[in-house]
Amino acid sequence: MKKNISCGELAAFWAVLVLSFGAVYQARADAGLAEQIAKADMGYGEYLAGECMTCHRNQSAGIPNINGLDAEKFVTIMRAYRSKELENKVMQMMAGRLNDEQIISLAAYFSSLSN
């Protein structure tokens, strides 16, 4: 039986296609991310983490606890704040001055902590 495809379904199809392509592209670009995280400078990460610890401590309203956060997820989120894809003026500013090496050092350090 023939099925009419609605505008909404078509839009969803394209959205999934574009997102999948984006994810694959990002994965290719980050092929070495796990390796970079493994080789990260933990001491530098610990020092840089001091800036985050002023706010990120306890699970309370407003600010999440980031101890134990998956390192690759950490990198993805911080890059999204840096490029201002994620909203929050404080985080956009804090991430804005971090280069990839610094973000990776932070990711390695925070992922090593117990939640």
Partner: peptide, 20 residues
């Protein structure tokens, strides 16, 4: 409202950073 909630999280964070 989110900004206010963020300030509550910050208070909890900084006082832990100072005294824990």
């Amino acid at each position: 409202k989110t900004t206010y909630e963020e300030s509550i999280g910050w208070y909890s964070g900084i006082t832990t950073d100072m005294f824990s």
